[in-house]
Design a protein around this nucleic acid. Sequence first.
DNA 1: TATTGTAACTTCAAAAATTAAAGTCAATGC
DNA 2: GCATTGACTTTAATTTTTGAAGTTACAATA
Lengths: 170, 170
Amino acid sequence: MGWDEIANSVCPIARSLAVLGDRWTMLLIREFFLGTRRFDALQAQTGMSSHLLASRLKRLERAGIVERRQYQARPPRYEYRLTPKGLDLHGVVLALRAWGMRWSGLDPADEPAVALIHKTCGSAISDLSFHHDCGQVLLPQDILTTFGDAFSAERIARSTHTAKDAADAP
Amino acid sequence: MGWDEIANSVCPIARSLAVLGDRWTMLLIREFFLGTRRFDALQAQTGMSSHLLASRLKRLERAGIVERRQYQARPPRYEYRLTPKGLDLHGVVLALRAWGMRWSGLDPADEPAVALIHKTCGSAISDLSFHHDCGQVLLPQDILTTFGDAFSAERIARSTHTAKDAADAP
DNA sequence: TATTGTAACTTCAAAAATTAAAGTCAATGC
DNA sequence: GCATTGACTTTAATTTTTGAAGTTACAATA
């Protein structure tokens, strides 16, 4: 019934969203990619309350996306940083950025909030494309979508829940 | 202070998240990509309450991501579908899927929830990569990140808010 | 030595968002 | 005529989030 059950779906998107899909988490991930590591700075830059930041950090830690480490003893101080699992969210962040640059009403003539320079070629990353292993650009219209058995079963169960609950009632 | 103010950031990620970043919206977008168009089906497959679904659809419509259209008169019935702006979220969905397949504990040996076949080459899309215009794969470590002036100003303002509020108080 | 400051949180009450269940409305199928 | 469908809306209860203040353990400054 609740949000937790989507974590158990066979759909990888649903499972990703079970941990990333709330008001603040992806903004926090963005902030990590910008290099911010300390609690107070994360709070200031995202604008979230300290209470929520603390609970989100705990969740991300449990999920293995972020790790907490002490960077000094006396006074004990901690920082947070992305694990390999967290760093692998780079694609999601780049995709959100690309879409936002195209559609969120920013003036393309303005200086971007963050300039990304591709070190190996030296030029700016203004947009990006998604490629398949075959080397071609992935376009939505070139993709054929088919449901697997487990997901089909899950979906049929969902669609009959409401109707069935009423029908099954004695 | 609130969530709305992130919509006014110069950061395209923040602006994207202002409309996409809550518990249900991206799951709803996924569902649209799977071809679901009707209110009741959207509700059943996402598991959200009808109340919330109605308000999210309104928000997505206002944002130009989804359009509502009547598909029959007498009884009047409506469906929702993605606009070009909504369809352009394909990259975000693919990125979330790719990450979820790698990290959310699904067994790679299992049949995927949804099989994506690349029509032009005939093989399945199990993973994808992000490419820069120069043709190379974009790797996080190859990207140099620099803040633009407007975003720097925004960030400095944020970081001084808390400290300053106390200092400025008469 | 006393006071102030810093970083990383926690606590608590108030406000806002979400859920669950039921209800509405206009037809249609039986 | 009566139950059903589809697209919602209403309402009250529950859960989450916010905002403000407090805590802990030191360090630095007066």
